[in-house]
Amino acid sequence: MTTVDTRDRGSRDGDARQGNARKRRISRGGWIGLAFVLPVFVLFLAFRFGPALGGVLLSFANYTVGGSLEWKGLLNYQRLIADPGFWNALRVTLVYALISVPLTIVAATGLALLTRRAFRGARLYRSVFFLPVVTSLILAGVVFTWIFSVDGPWSSILESVGFPVTNWLESSTFALPAVALVGVWTRFGYGVLIMLAKLQEVPKELEEAALMDGAGPWQRFRRIVLPELRPAIFFLIVIETTFSFQAFDTIYVMTSGGPVDATYTLVFSLYRESFANFDFGYAGAIGVVLFVLTLIVALIQRIVFGKES
């Protein structure tokens, strides 16, 4: 998903060289270069490219545990369309993204602005903010299960502001926001780093000039900092949306998709259909839907980035 500079300077260097020597080099380097790439490329074909292709093909078929394959055309997709469970999973996935992505980006921007200036402890704060990113999602899930439990801190906070005490993870209304909040906790630190990197590029002269003109903090942010941050924000939207579509580990530990499918995401239904129901073809179709969603996000990125530059 990274935007990548893939222009190849190496190939242009060679043009100036003399024909014969060049030919000899290519043929010699030919198999040596291949020998360096081949080990990982074979692994790539066997365990990444092949299975991806297989995943798409599988969605048009029915594969049994016993090992036989039967082509089914579009039947798996017809099932998807007729299956209320699928539409629920799609809705849950999108709602999860709609809650977690904006919160992640707002938190990341705010904390990056807060700690951008050199002051004592700024580095320490940044390190703390990144800590959840390197923490395993399973650990996050285990701890937050306790945090959201009726005896846990979250319920106490709710109680103190006059909310009824319930376990959010057992409520079909609040379970999804709860797991999405955990998603924010695990991701915002990454955004902070991205934002800090971008903030360094904000021209200081502009901000100083604005300060001289008597612009307040909010105005300086709106008019000078925010426009500079736009590419970073957009990059984060794409990355975090893609990430949120794939949320699984925390949901597995915290709710198992429940209560009553309230946190049953597409990835969770893919997992269930394949490894609990062993309905591989149908799960393949869900995988293709996930792929298409990712492509849509990437496409939007292209369109908007195209406009920006």
């Binding site: 991806a52 995943g55 990835v267 995988g287």
Partner: peptide, 28 residues
């Protein structure tokens, strides 16, 4: 290094960054 198929190989690698892991999961 320069070798036959370098661009094709490299691009096929990079293009897989776009493909969600979960679609490969079942065949894998």
């Amino acid at each position: 290094k320069r070798f036959r198929g370098r661009e094709v190989m490299f691009w096929s690698l990079v293009s897989m960054l776009m493909v969600p892991y979960h679609i490969t999961l079942i065949p894998l």
